[in-house]
Simulated assay, not measured.
Amino acid sequence: MNIFTGSFKEIEQALNYSTLKQKTISNNIANADTPNYKAKEVSFKRAFEEAQAGGLSAYRTNERHLVFKSENSSPAVMSRNVSFNQNGNSVDIDKEMSDLATNQIYYNALVDRMSGKFNTLTSVIKGGR
Results as ranks from 00 to 15, higher is better:
residue 33 D to T: 13
residue 117 K to G: 01
residue 43 S to G: 07
residue 85 N to A: 13
residue 91 V to T: 07
residue 58 A to S: 15
residue 107 Y to T: 14
residue 70 S to M: 06
residue 36 N to T: 13
residue 78 M to R: 14
residue 122 T to R: 15
residue 79 S to M: 06
residue 106 Y to A: 07
residue 75 P to F: 03
residue 50 E to H: 12
residue 32 A to K: 10
residue 49 E to V: 14
residue 102 T to I: 12
residue 112 D to Y: 10
residue 42 V to K: 11
residue 37 Y to C: 04
residue 105 I to Q: 07
residue 5 T to W: 00
residue 31 N to I: 08
residue 85 N to E: 06
residue 5 T to Y: 04
residue 98 S to Q: 09
residue 83 S to V: 14
residue 80 R to A: 02
residue 17 Y to A: 03
residue 34 T to F: 04
residue 119 N to D: 12
residue 24 T to S: 11
residue 95 K to W: 00
residue 110 L to R: 05
residue 65 H to A: 13
residue 12 E to N: 10
residue 27 N to S: 14
residue 84 F to L: 14
residue 9 K to N: 09
residue 127 G to Q: 08
residue 8 F to W: 02
residue 97 M to K: 10
residue 124 V to A: 15
residue 13 Q to V: 00
residue 115 S to I: 02
residue 104 Q to N: 12
residue 88 G to K: 06
residue 77 V to S: 05
residue 21 K to V: 00
residue 106 Y to N: 10
residue 129 R to K: 14
residue 41 E to H: 09
residue 98 S to R: 10
residue 104 Q to M: 12
residue 84 F to T: 05
residue 16 N to S: 07
residue 43 S to W: 06
residue 107 Y to K: 04
residue 122 T to G: 05
residue 8 F to L: 05
residue 35 P to C: 07
residue 60 R to F: 01
residue 21 K to R: 15
residue 41 E to L: 11
residue 53 A to H: 10
residue 97 M to T: 08
residue 115 S to A: 11
residue 97 M to P: 01
residue 79 S to Q: 12
residue 121 L to Y: 13
residue 19 T to W: 07
residue 8 F to A: 03
residue 70 S to T: 12
residue 15 L to R: 00
